[in-house]
């Protein structure tokens, strides 16, 4: 039937439209979540580094390195913070959380660096490291390393949940659209069959199902019946 073909195109159009909406929304969501969460984690690390830097001034001035170690041990228990180290004003390592030792790449790097840098530590993984100066740098620098693998996993989970929700909305929306299209397509199909039967001379004058409808289809059915009757009356007797 031509009607079905017409609505097949509509269904395809709806599916395509939903697909485009879902893909673009997912892409935007991935970008937004990735950017925001990455910034969030980086900011958290900066805040932690700054908190340690602020609270370690007295401890450093008192040269109580056990208390300093105790302080950073508490922060390294926070998930995704994988290492912390503190260097003094000469670059000497005063406290750290590395086991079995300070990685060579960190030992040989600039100890006063505070901007976010990406690091690969052999045997440990990939990290983003941020730093914060203690007493404007004259007492040393705090460095905090975040596990990017763990952060990526968290971001992937957050994105996954959003994309999952979008996909569910897509499927529900698609089936809802098909149901709505069918709601319009089925009476039109019936009307077409009715028109064909009238044209074929069949007596379906009392097709209540169509004629009793109080909508455009019902009105069209009445019109078709009327036209059909008029044509019959105009035919000469044979």
């Amino acid at each position: 039937m031509k009607i079905k073909k017409l609505f097949q195109k509509t269904r395809f159009g709806i599916f395509s439209l939903f697909g485009v909406i879902s893909l673009s929304t997912s892409a935007l969501c991935i970008y937004t979540v990735d950017t925001h969460l990455s910034e969030e984690y980086e900011n958290n690390s900066k805040n932690i580094a700054k908190t340690i830097a602020d609270s370690s001034v007295d401890i450093l001035l008192n040269r109580d390195l056990a208390a300093l170690q105790s302080l950073i041990d508490q922060f390294v228990e926070i998930q995704s913070i994988k290492y912390i180290y503190i260097t003094d004003e000469s670059g000497e390592f005063l406290a750290h959380t590395f086991v079995p030792g300070i990685p060579e790449v960190i030992r040989t790097d600039d100890p006063f660096k505070t901007e976010a840098i990406e690091r690969n530590l052999p045997g440990m993984g990939d990290f983003v490291e941020v730093g914060s100066p203690i007493l404007a740098g004259i007492a040393g620098t705090v460095h905090v390393g975040m596990d990017t693998g763990l952060i990526a996993l968290k971001i992937q989970r957050a994105i996954g949940r959003q994309v999952y929700l979008i996909c569910i909305i897509l499927v529900i929306g698609f089936f809802a659209a098909i149901w709505l299209v069918n709601l319009a397509a089925n009476p039109l199909g019936d009307l077409l069959a009715y028109a064909v039967s009238l044209a074929g001379g069949e007596n379906r004058a009392s097709d209540d199902k169509l004629l009793s409808r109080d909508d455009e289809v019902g009105h069209l059915a009445h019109l078709l019946l009327y036209v059909s009757k008029g044509e019959k009356n105009e035919q000469p007797d044979t």
Binding site: L65, A66, A67, L68, Q69, S70, D73, A95, T97, V99
Partner: peptide, 11 residues
């Protein structure tokens, strides 16, 4: 030991 005790002795 990677904690306050170890650091105390290290210091």
């Amino acid at each position: 030991q990677a904690d306050a005790y170890g650091r105390s002795g290290w210091a």
